[in-house]
């Protein structure tokens, strides 16, 4: 979490190898990630960008979902079954042949998600998944992502929504102006944030609602 321009996206992008750290190094998957090319990280790390339109490349929903698999040469009959299964889950199975640009914002977002998890990366980096989703849907997808992590995946997510963070996440890293302010389990993170004076990033409580 963190204010606009604090460096959340930059942090995620640096982990994916788009920026070279000016100091320090990134260690993961038994190698130094800061020296690994993005292309070689793809099998281990999935990345969802902020804007769905920047990451839709193909002419059909099915091709879009399968693009990473094809690029990694992992496409086969067995995987196709898995593709179909996931498309059913996100409700796009009847639209496999449609042009992905015709989908609604929420549908595109879900397609973005499926498109980066089909090859089972161990780490998922998500930049603002919840923008444009209503609260019900947001809860549904946070629950889904939480279940997904229980299967041995790790998710690092840039997020503005304190309530959802509190309800579904394990660990909060709060960044301001490029510096880590707190890095704590979610159980203590928000009281620390409150003590530091970041009131607007606290989950809305009954008390706050009473003021309004």
């Amino acid at each position: 979490m963190g204010p606009n321009g604090s460096g959340k996206s930059t942090l995620l992008q640096t982990l994916m190898g788009f920026h070279t750290p000016t100091q320090g190094k990134i260690q993961g998957f038994n190698q130094e990630l800061s020296k690994t090319k993005t292309s070689n990280l793809v099998k281990d790390i999935g990345f969802i960008f902020q804007n769905p339109d920047h990451q839709i490349f193909t002419q059909s929903v099915l091709d879009e979902a399968a693009l990473t698999l094809r690029n990694l040469n992992l496409m086969n009959g067995k995987v196709l079954e898995k593709v179909n299964q996931y498309m059913q889950m996100i409700g796009l199975y009847p639209r496999l042949e449609d042009h992905p640009q015709r989908l609604s914002f929420g549908e595109k977002r879900r397609l973005n998600l499926v498109a980066v998890i089909l090859h089972d990366p161990k780490l998922l980096l998500i930049d603002e998944f919840l923008i444009g989703q209503d609260l019900d849907n947001a809860h549904k997808w946070m629950q889904w992502l939480k279940d997904y992590t229980s299967k041995g995946h790790t998710i690092l997510m840039a997020n503005h929504h304190a309530q959802l963070t509190q309800a579904y996440c394990d660990r909060v890293i709060f960044i301001d102006a490029g510096r880590v302010i707190i890095d704590e389990p979610v159980s203590t993170a928000f009281s620390s944030l409150e003590a530091l004076g970041y009131r607007q990033f606290l989950p809305h409580t009954g008390e706050v609602l009473a003021y309004a």
Binding site: M16, T38, S39, G46, F47, F49, Q55, F57, N71
Partner: peptide, 8 residues
């Protein structure tokens, strides 16, 4: 970058 992240 999004292309790279998808294995292009």
């Amino acid at each position: 970058r999004a292309q790279l992240a998808r294995g292009v």
